[in-house]
Amino acid sequence: MSSGESRIVAVVTLRRDVQAGGVPVFPVADETERDQVALLLAKLLRGTIHDLRNGSYVIVRH
């Protein structure tokens, strides 16, 4: 529980049609790579990985 708002710090996605808009987007080839990249980014950014269930993970700092 932290004060302040949650913020999306990165998006890791399998989709090719996702446009970058204010947040860094990391396109990946498959699910294994998505999990790896998301984990590395989450550790770097101290964020939490959330699954949007449309092929994208968002990394959110709460």
């Binding site: 999990d35 998301a38 984990l39 989450a42 939490t48 990985i49 959330h50 699954d51 269930r53 993970y57 968002v58």
Partner: peptide, 17 residues
Amino acid sequence: GPILTVAGVQIMNVGLP
């Protein structure tokens, strides 16, 4: 799905398998 649930209450979205 990715949502951690206890007794029918959704707690949070855990993305990583």
